[in-house]
Design a protein around this nucleic acid. Structure first.
Length: 561
RNA sequence: GCCCUCGUAGUUAAAUGGAUAUAACUGGAGACUUCUAAUCUCCCAUUCUAGGUUCGAUUCCUAGCGAGGGCACCA
């Protein structure tokens, strides 16, 4: 049984004997490991209710607990203002290590979401535009969250969404047609878009022509334009696929705006007078219907803007997979926008209530200033990856490594993923290129390096024929590493509760640090030491937890370094 | 103007209302004939301001200050 459950029941049993009870027993890991493995504040909470001294009440509770101590608990102590601290027994630690060895890759999995259908959308780069660093952030967060959701037994579909129609496409095509620019590669398309966007902003004539092209794209009424459109889309999507592969992302399905636009337009038209209203030639979702702000769902030109497309997308998703929950990873700048769209969607289909979840991610800001696709100061996702990779290569110069290119790439991906995932999802990320390139301290490469170290030890043990064994607690006693590894399944749950995997980053960093101290203080592989087989087994458990944890973060595993 | 986020060492981050606020980077002092030091050990340093709720507040409430974002045919 789960250790948290055991402790909670132990507390509840002693409360019952004292004719006390509380709705929920709170358990936490004390910050200071000297304060035990778990700590409860029940005495302090209840003391207040029955106006008794918290420490005295704690003593009563503890004396009841001590009459029937489960084998998993070594001792119970009272500390500070009335905390009850639980120290786990060596029996428990031994069993928890055996459990890790037994369950292996499945350690940390649970059934919290069993039988639930979830769909998650992330990574929304638009054809004809660059895959920029914001898409990178979105992908990293979405991918990691997908993996956590899978760990909880959900039936999950992962999908992407791409703006293959819209003004930006018209701007690019305008430049290709009018300025006779090439359109063979993603770089060509990016240049065409930049030129078209500039012309749209500064040149009235060009603006008219672009608006005209935009209509032709939607109606597919011009063969030449449709041809450029389809070809450009193909080039872009293939290119995105390469980046996703590089990042370790796979999708079950891809949605396009050209599909959602038609569906969305119909939904809007079908609901005029009910959900939507006509106003100045456009169709709007008025402020009064949401309490938020008015938004245009169909332009006076009859074109479906983002609002209608997103409405259509929700229907497409539901037709594709009848979800219990639809999760959308979006830029924090669109947070307010999506509140309005969700509200409209729920008014169109009331059964969607509570089934649409938008998780905003922070904006990645360069220390040099704001990033935009319209001015020159863009940093593409590939630029970042390539620069990180070449720096990793530099750092590896003095080492003897096979396939160094491949390792450098994995180290680079670990560095950026760690930087993005380390903070609470939703907070802006300050991206200092130099620091992210430094690989110092808390970082993805630090995690990878710790794992590589553990494997080097295990390889040596194997070579010397020293087999792992977990039959009894070592004479030297239980250390901090045992007190850390068993927490992994709790962390997985916590990530789901908060829809954020930064807890895993914090945990793996702490775990690695504890392992590195263990590594520095103890000689793990030592022939004549009776504890050696145990330490080898413990190292194997560390390896297993790191592998499972890095997998959740989507940080690549280095088999050798 | 209205609405939404956010404000933690010099810097970047962590902390279901709990104990002496946790790490990393920077700065200072140490540790490699060893399972390769991308490591480890020690030191210095932090909750925007003013009230309130609470046994207890970085966390909740109110006001202020500061940063970012959103608010009709762009995405």
């Amino acid at each position: 049984m789960d250790i948290r459950q055991i402790i909670k029941e132990t507390i509840n049993k002693s409360l019952t004997k004292l004719s006390l009870r509380t709705e929920s027993v709170l358990l936490e890991h004390p910050n200071d490991i000297d304060h035990g493995d778990y700590s409860s504040n029940v005495a302090m909470v209840l003391a207040n209710d029955i106006s008794e001294n918290p420490r005295q009440l704690a003593e009563k509770i503890v004396s009841e607990i001590e009459k029937d101590l489960p084998k998993e608990i070594e001792k119970v102590e009272i500390a500070g203002p009335g905390f009850i601290n639980f120290y786990l027994s060596s029996d428990f630690f031994l069993e928890s290590l055996q459990e890790i060895k037994k369950v292996g890759n499945k350690y940390g999995q649970n059934e919290t979401l069993k039988g639930k259908k979830l769909i998650i959308e992330h990574s929304q780069p638009n054809p004809f535009k660059e895959f920029h660093i914001g898409h990178l952030v979105n992908n990293i967060i979405g991918e990691s969250l997908s993996r956590v959701i899978r760990q909880q037994g959900a039936d999950l579909k992962v999908v992407s969404y791409h703006g293959d129609v819209g003004l930006h496409v018209a701007q690019a095509i305008w430049a290709i047609v009018k300025k006779e620019l090439p359109s063979e590669t993603v770089v060509d398309l990016g240049k065409a878009y930049a030129l078209g966007a500039k012309a749209y902003a500064n040149d009235e004539q060009a603006k008219k022509e672009i608006t005209d092209i935009n209509k032709k794209i939607y109606t597919e009424s011009d063969q030449e334009i449709s041809k450029i459109h389809k070809l450009g889309r193909e080039i872009s999507l293939e290119h995105f696929e390469e980046i996703f592969t590089r990042l370790g992302s796979k999708f079950d399905h891809r949605f396009l705006e050209s599909q959602s636009a038609l569906v969305g337009k119909k939904i809007v038209l079908d609901n005029v007078g009910k959900v939507f209203e006509e106003s100045q030639g456009a169709i709007i979702f008025p402020e009064a219907h949401s309490g938020l702000h008015t938004r245009v769902f169909l332009t006076s030109e009859g074109i479906a803007p983002y609002e209608a497309k997103d409405l259509g997308l929700i229907k497409l998703k539901r037709d594709y997979f009848l979800f219990d929950l639809s999760i959308n990873i979006v830029d924090v700048e669109q947070g307010e926008y999506f509140k309005v769209v969700n509200c409209a969607a729920e008014q169109v289909s009331p059964d969607l209530k509570g089934k649409l979840l938008h998780i905003p991610h922070g904006r990645l800001r360069l220390t040099t200033g704001r990033m935009s696709s319209r001015d020159g100061n863009i940093l593409s996702g590939e630029d970042v990856l390539n620069r990180l990779t070449s720096l990793a290569l530099e750092r590896m110069q003095d080492r003897e490594i096979d396939n160094r290119e491949e390792v450098a790439e994995k180290v680079a991906i670990a560095a950026i993923k760690y930087a993005v995932l380390r903070q609470t999802a939703g907070k802006n990320i300050v991206f200092d290129e130099d620091k992210s390139l430094s690989f110092e301290g808390d970082s993805g490469p630090y995690l990878q390096y710790s794992l590589v170290r553990a494997r080097a030890v295990l390889a040596k043990a194997k070579k010397e024929d020293l087999l792992a064994k977990l039959s009894e607690t070592p004479v030297s006693g239980v250390g901090n590493l045992e007190r850390e590894v068993y927490k992994f399944p709790e962390i997985v749950l916590k990530c789901l509760e908060d829809w954020s995997t930064h807890h895993m980053v914090t945990y793996l960093t702490e775990l690695s640090s504890v392992f590195n101290t263990f590594y520095a203080n103890e000689r793990i592989v030592e022939k004549n030491d009776p504890d050696c087989p145990y330490r080898v087994a413990l190292t194997e458990c560390f390896e297993q937890v790191m592998v499972n944890g890095l997998n959740i973060l989507g940080i690549p595993d280095l088999k050798e370094m």
